[in-house]
Design a protein around this nucleic acid. Structure first.
Lengths: 332, 332
DNA sequence: GTGGATAATGTAATCGGTTACAGATAAAAA
DNA sequence: TTTTTATCTGTAACCGATTACATTATCCAC
């Protein structure tokens, strides 16, 4: 492997000139630049970026901490982050924590040990209580909630949930079931607040029996819907806190011989790509995954560069997408 | 930021002792180790891994080159790769090329410039013709085909496709449509070969009109199925070369008022998680994503360590999963 | 007590870049 | 011509670890 000194020797200039020819060409004469490039060509020189990073004390890499990369919503956000990062010359380290605090810690350690310059977290919570992110590392939460601390990008979960439930109520539904995420997940909290707000505004009493706890997996949607289907007085609509659970719920509902939306309306949250293609297509809240990722990356870059943030919180608009899985209440 | 010299000073030992206490504790006395740890605690020292990587000329990172991270099959493989990498102390750099050769090149450059120690490619082709991967970099293809060069992990695409078509034929189908991937994709080639082999063995003539070219997206499945539904003599079964296209095709077929599998059977490939939950659930070939990822990572590690590979090609078994989207031919 | 082996430690070179500083050259101004 | 200024280049220190090599301390055998 050839290094900068080899190139300098061949080109007949000093290492400083080679270095400058590559990173500050405006400080070097055209003649030298030509000689340097010719020499680089000749020996097949590739600068050792590890050395450069080491010297400049910047790794030009960031960590994306995500609970589960196979979740399509997360992978869309990651793609957007990666896109922006690549534009700015940064690499993205995958940090699939699988919900395990130790793994999360491991990745945060990468930042502390200078292998990455910052972290974007794709989880609504603050890092696990035992893994408080050190004050001095650059950090942005890209899946924030109302209660999330630190710089964050989020949508108005409560408002989005409310508008969705408002719509169901406008269709005549009064018994509206909910399949939530895990109880202590802030998204669950915010979206449930929107649900309650909507009911209250419409003068409909809150019924604990209509709340089923899921965990954002298809599987939990399947199970929770079971519970609704077996009730003597079934809900006429079900609001699922993500699309995966809605897809699972639809499966269960159909297997009970019930029709969607005639017997039960179903709505989801996120607008993953399958939402459009399931049967029936799913009414849902479209999160702007692309913008979330881009904006989070931009904020993190500012933090890394030490520039002040224009805003520590960005609330992006979510779009309400009406498809075929919701319809008028038949039972009046 | 404190460095190893600060720690040495506080602990009252030399930097060499501190370094050894951390990486070769068996060479240091217990007394020194204690002093070092106490000092580390005191100043909040975190070793600069960038310096370590630089010195040891290893980045302990690998690049995963993937055409599209939002593809659920890829993200499962990536998760497995990441899992193994983390176990072995390696980081995974996301390389979402979005099919663009320049981006792919950019990521390969990261390896050449020592920012990563190797590459795992999740695309059946060799790197784009213009981006030949240099001989001297550690490289494994995790989505290989019969024609893939270099170390590779793959399934028997041809055999899997054949067994699937064999099954359709055993159900009485003789007009079996195919929605392929892009024409020049090696997977398309291998799977089509399996299809033809099966037909030939059953004495069924190959009919060009039953082949529709897709591109592995849901959207292309939707469109290609359109073509089949409009034929005067429709196929009674459709083999889609991945699950996304099958999901799209089912959508189109149902929208034409046709029943699956009564009027048309549909089969996919990959067994992504939605295959089980779409309506009807999808008959498909389950690729062992987990094993593919793990094995590819293990092979790459051997290459990085300079150990010889036991085998340059690993062919893993694929499982044939029969669900509800396929049934006996009614017209037969 | 002496010699030799073993264990523990320290000094300083080293990895491959970047960059402060100084020196050289050339062009412009006096 | 001399001075000033701008442009270009080179020397060498530096980043923070690892590690070869040298040194010292410790222990055991004879």
């Amino acid at each position: 492997m050839s290094n900068i000194r080899d190139v300098a020797k061949i080109a007949g200039v000093s290492v400083a000139t080679v270095s400058r020819a590559l990173s500050n060409p405006e400080k070097v004469s055209k003649a030298s630049i030509d000689k340097v490039h010719k020499a680089i060509e000749q020996v097949g020189y590739r600068p050792n970026m590890l050395a450069r990073s080491f010297r400049s004390a910047k790794s030009y890499a960031i960590v994306v901490l995500v609970p589960d990369i196979t979740n399509p919503f997360f992978s869309e956000v990651i793609r957007a982050i990666e896109d922006r990062a690549q534009q700015k010359g940064y690499a993205v380290l995958m940090g699939d924590s699988r919900g395990q605090p130790e793994r999360e810690k491991e990745y945060i350690r990468r930042v502390e040990t200078r292998l990455a310059d910052g972290v974007i977290q794709l989880r609504p919570d603050e890092p696990h209580k035992t893994n408080v992110i050190p004050e001095d590392i650059a950090y942005v939460n890209a899946c924030g909630c109302e209660t999330t601390l630190g710089p964050r990008v989020r949508i108005d979960n409560r408002g989005a949930a409310k508008s969705l439930v408002d719509y169901l109520i406008s269709l005549g539904h009064t018994r509206i079931g909910v399949i939530t995420g895990l109880k202590d997940n802030p998204h669950t909290h915010d979206r449930l607040a929107g649900y309650k707000e909507s009911l209250e505004q419409a003068g409909i009493a809150f019924d604990r029996a209509l709340i089923a706890e899921g965990d954002f997996t298809i599987w939990s949607g399947l199970n929770s819907a079971q519970q609704f289907c077996n009730m003597e007085q079934r809900p006429t609509a079900v609001f699922c806190m993500n699309d995966e659970m809605a897809i699972g719920a639809m499966q269960t509902i159909k297997s009970h011989g019930l029709k969607i939306p005639e017997d039960i309306s179903v709505a989801g949250f996120d607008d993953i790509s399958y939402a459009r293609y399931c049967d029936p297509s799913l009414t849902t809240i479209a999160q702007p995954a692309e913008e979330i990722g881009k904006l989070a990356m931009d904020m993190l870059l500012r933090l890394i560069e030490g520039e002040p943030l224009a805003q520590t919180e960005a609330v992006l608009p979510a779009e309400f997408v009406i498809r075929k899985s919701t319809g008028p209440c038949r039972k009046g």
